[in-house]
């Protein structure tokens, strides 16, 4: 017998005796997204509710969240960030929004789509990516290895700039999970990451430090 069969047969043997049900549980209902929504933090029904909740969460997380009035504002916004921080190298990937953002940036742009050199990516001061969704409930950004230029681009450069469209701002976690399933099941990207705020640690005396391993800065531009 293989170890797989050994383990599975031990499990089946063990499960022949039923376990007492946990406290307060009457039957085994399969919790549904509506059930989760009933207990999780509340999100208002309108788009402006979602935007203001996302903004409040971002502020608490020390992420920068900017709502741009139109796509035309994207180019100048990115350029002013470049000037303010003195970027000399930027990394990004091909995409409708990223193409616009990087087109006239005036610094070399490393595109990760066709593969890249780790050390070169490490040397970039910013990574500009698109995302699959923004989540108002938690102030999170959902990225995937397929839609955001791979696994490293969203975590290696010290400043991560996320570009999102208004239609991508979902209300809550149940909606984000449903979106993932609808879009990908069963053929999921090899990595899906829910990013909430810049990289952080509290491992030294529980004092918050940003930029432990990942980006020190996270900027989200909503278009």
């Amino acid at each position: 017998m293989t170890e797989r069969e050994n383990i599975l047969s031990r499990i089946r043997e063990a499960l022949r005796v039923p376990a007492p049900q946990p406290l307060g549980m009457t039957e085994t209902p399969l919790p549904k997204p509506e059930d989760h929504r009933r207990v999780l933090p509340k999100v208002g029904p309108s788009e402006s509710d979602r935007i203001s909740l996302f903004a409040a969460n971002a502020e608490e997380l020390r992420a920068r969240f900017v709502v741009l009035p139109a796509i035309e504002a994207l180019e100048s916004e990115i350029r002013s960030m470049k000037d303010a921080e003195g970027w000399t190298r930027v990394a990004s990937h091909r995409g409708e929004l990223t193409d616009i953002a990087c087109a006239k940036l005036g610094v070399p742009v490393l595109l990760t789509d066709e593969g890249y050199d780790k050390t070169e990516l490490e040397a970039c001061q910013a990574g500009v990516t698109e995302c699959d969704a923004l989540i108002a409930q938690t102030g999170s950004v959902l990225v995937t290895s397929r839609g955001s230029g791979g696994r490293a681009l969203t975590v290696l450069p010290p400043h991560h700039v996320v570009l999102a469209r208004r239609s991508q701002l979902v209300a809550d976690l149940p909606e984000a999970m449903a979106l993932m399933r609808k879009k990908y099941h069963p053929n999921y990207p090899s990595m899906i990451s829910i990013i909430t705020g810049p990289s952080r640690t509290g491992d030294i005396e529980r004092i918050l430090v940003l930029g432990a391993h990942g980006p020190k800065k996270l900027t989200i531009l909503l278009i």
Binding site: P41, N57, H93, T112, D113, E114, G115, Y116, T138, S140, S145, R146, G149, G150, R151, A152, L153, V155, L173, Y188, P189, S190, M191, I192, S193, I194, I195, T196, G197, P198, S199, R200, G214
Partner: peptide
């Protein structure tokens, strides 16, 4: 409310993905 990174891994680098 939620941790900084919650990441799902489903396999090695897939066709069409740049890294992993």
């Amino acid at each position: 409310l939620i941790s900084g990174y919650n990441t799902l891994y489903g396999g090695p680098r897939q066709p069409g993905e740049p890294d992993g």
